[in-house]
Each structure stands twice: as C-alpha cells, then as structure tokens.
Design a protein around this nucleic acid. Structure first.
Lengths: 198, 198
DNA sequence: AGCAGAACTCTACGGCTGCTGAAATCTTGG
DNA sequence: CCAAGATTTCAGCAGCCGTAGAGTTCTGCT
C-alpha cells in the first residue's frame, strides 16, 4: 500500500497549491522558526511535491520572506491604540497583545520571528524593524515625548519578554493569571516606559 | 598541504581534551543554541576527532546538559542581591544583569538556553526551572510577599525580554544608552513587580 | 484544433548530520 | 616487561537537507 504516487502534470483549474504552500509555510515557520522548518515538511503539509515549493517561491529564504510578510500588518492596530488618546495607551497595548497571543497561539507571527532570529540574521533584522519602525516608533512619534527611541526599545523589551516567557519558556503563572490582571500590570509598565519621566 | 592527520592512540598524560571539548561545547551552545551547534564543529574547535566527543559525553543531548550545567550557578548572586535589604533589590538585580550581559557578551549561558529553548524542549525546561526555582523564587520567598509565583514570572518576563531585545534582536537603544540609566529604569520595573501592590 | 506555457512530479546530486565499530597508540599496575 | 585498560583517530552508515533538471500533463489563447 501506501505510496499511491500522483501522476505529474497540471491539476484542475483551481488547485490552489500556491496558496496551500504559503499557508503551510507560514504555519511551520511560526511554530518552528526558520532553521527547523524544512521545505519537505512544508510540501508534505500542503500535499505537494517539494520541488513545487521551489518552483513557486525559489529558495527557502525567499519562501520565508513571502510567508512572513503577510501576517505582519500592524498599521490598523497602531491607529486603534492611539485613537482614544494618550491616557491608557499602555493598557490598551498590553490588553491587545495578550488577546492576540491567546487567539493565535501557538502560531503567532512575531513569535515566529523571535524563534527564527535565533539562528537567522535576516529574521533578526525583520523583527527589529517590525518592532521599532512598524509599531513602537509610530506610537512614540505620535505621543511627542523625549527619548523616543529609548522608550520604544524599553517597550519592545517588555513585549518581547512577555511573549517569550509565555510562549517559549512557558511560565505557568503567565498562562493561568487572569488576562485582565496581566493587562493592568503590564499596561502600567508600558505606560511608564512611554510617557513618564525616565 | 594540510591534512597532516594525527595518528590515533593515547596522547600525553595530561592532554586535557575532555576539558577542551567541554569548553568548546559551552561556547558553541551559548552562541548558537542547541540545534545549530554540531558535534563536528565542537570537535574542530577542540582540535579533536568528532568520535572523541561521543566517547566522552555520549549523545549530543548529554553533552548539552553537561556543558550547560556548570555556567549556571546563581546561588551566590541571589545572596548578594538580598543582603542589603528589600529596598533597591530591583535596582541591584538590573544593574547586575546588565553588567553580566556586558561582560559575557555574546556568550551568556542564559542566552544560550533562550536560543536553545526555541527548538529543544528540554532546554525550555532547563530555562524555566533556572529562572524560577533557582533565582526568582528564592528572591520572592525571601521577600515574603503575596502572589510570589506571579511576581517571579513578571520579573522573569522583563529579564528575558531585556536579554532578547539586546542580544538577539539587537535594538540599538539598549546597547548605547548608559548602563546606569538602564539599570534605574529596569530596576524600578523589577522593584514594582517584586514588592509593590499588584 | 493546435500550440505555448504554466503547473506538477520524479529522480537524483552533493553535502551535512549524529553516531558506531574497529584499529591504533599510549599509560599504568603488577 | 608485559598485559589490561584508557584515549584517540579512521572509515563509514543511514538519514536528513536544499536544490536542480528533465519529463508529464493540463490550461488558455488563437
């Protein structure tokens, strides 16, 4: 039994294999990071020959860039955080982050970048640019405070730490404690990093 | 030229290859994490045949455990943090952490565990136990506060975040800002997590 | 209808990995 | 001084990996 090999050649009009590959790649990259993700594994998830992955997306690095590009679109979130004004922006950030962590666990794209940044320099760069330029610098710029870059970095360090401590290290207290309580605690920290005198 | 292969057989009485292998393994594990470290690479650093690594330490996982066990001995540090009393314990923790990060960069053992925890479950467990049981729980226990486990986890999240943001992501502001300033900011956060009402 | 090209699979190459068994060499105890 | 044991290298197995090239089948245009 078993192999049941499929014949080569073009499939039906809307095979959608390109999309399946992209989805499978995003999933595996987010859960395993760059290095531990294999083209063969992605292809297996998508029900496709590994060579097809290469045919559509080129090298593994190009696949990574394309699979990770889509899930990261923080523009709308930033607007939403800033809309109600400066007061409580830290709290809103923390609450939103915890919500997203719960909803997307364990396949959070930022977590994917963190995992990959370990062994893959370009992922570290993607993550650095995403954290600062795409999210936090926008917030600090809108708040018009001094030492904006430092404030953004402080926030990033607490955000990253929360993600890693919860999802990678798996500290139990961060999983069991009520989300609203955590949002309050971390919100105070972020608010201080953003607007209080340093 | 080159190969200049060495003949097999026992070396001089105090070849010390076992120690060389252990040191090379610790270095590579700390800089690259578990997965990206190869036995062959460790052997090359130690100037030794890869098979000798297996002869001394068994599997790669056993080598990891033995190479990482030594650098993590936080007992004395904890005593030192608590000695002057509760006031300013957060500040002392932050200052000490930043100092150690500077001195050991980029080969910090905790960073090694973080890198490895990505792809290696036992490293995640080691890190979790090290962070909570070996360090932070001792502090919270000595402070006699409520919600000790949560407080320890909060501190761990900020500590881990600082390490990752600085050493893995490489946020510039965290490298250029004066160490004392950072120690003050993070010290306040840790102090709040440890002793303030939540 | 016919043809260009897109989609798809097969096979395979070269390289790297952890790990093993055997042989070679040295040290040490008797 | 010789046997037993410790250390060290060699050679290689089996298994992954990313990637390339050639061949097969289907779609869409004319």
């Amino acid at each position: 039994m078993s192999t049941a090999r499929r014949r080569p050649g073009r499939r039906g009009a809307d095979a959608g294999n390109r999309g399946k590959i992209l989805a499978a790649a995003a999933k595996r990259f987010t859960e395993l990071g760059f290095r531990a993700t294999t083209i063969r594994g992605v292809a297996a998830d998508a029900g496709v020959d590994p060579a097809l992955v290469h045919y559509f997306f080129g090298t593994k690095e190009q696949l990574f860039a394309q699979a990770m590009a889509l899930p990261l679109d923080p523009g709308a979130v930033v607007e939403e955080m800033l809309a109600p004004g400066v007061d409580g922006v830290g709290r809103r950030l923390a609450a939103r982050l915890l919500q997203v962590l719960d909803e997307t666990a364990p396949a959070n794209p930022v977590l994917a970048l963190i995992r990959s940044a370990t062994a893959h320099e370009s992922a570290a760069t993607m993550l650095r640019e995403f954290l600062t330029a795409a999210v936090l610098n926008r917030i600090t710029a809108a708040l018009d405070v001094d030492r904006a870059e430092l404030r953004a970095a402080l926030c990033a360090s607490q955000v990253v730490g929360l993600i890693v401590a919860r999802e990678v290290v798996g500290l139990p207290a961060l999983r069991t404690t009520d989300r609203a309580v955590l949002a309050g605690i971390y919100g105070d920290t972020l608010q201080r990093y953003l607007t209080e005198p340093l």
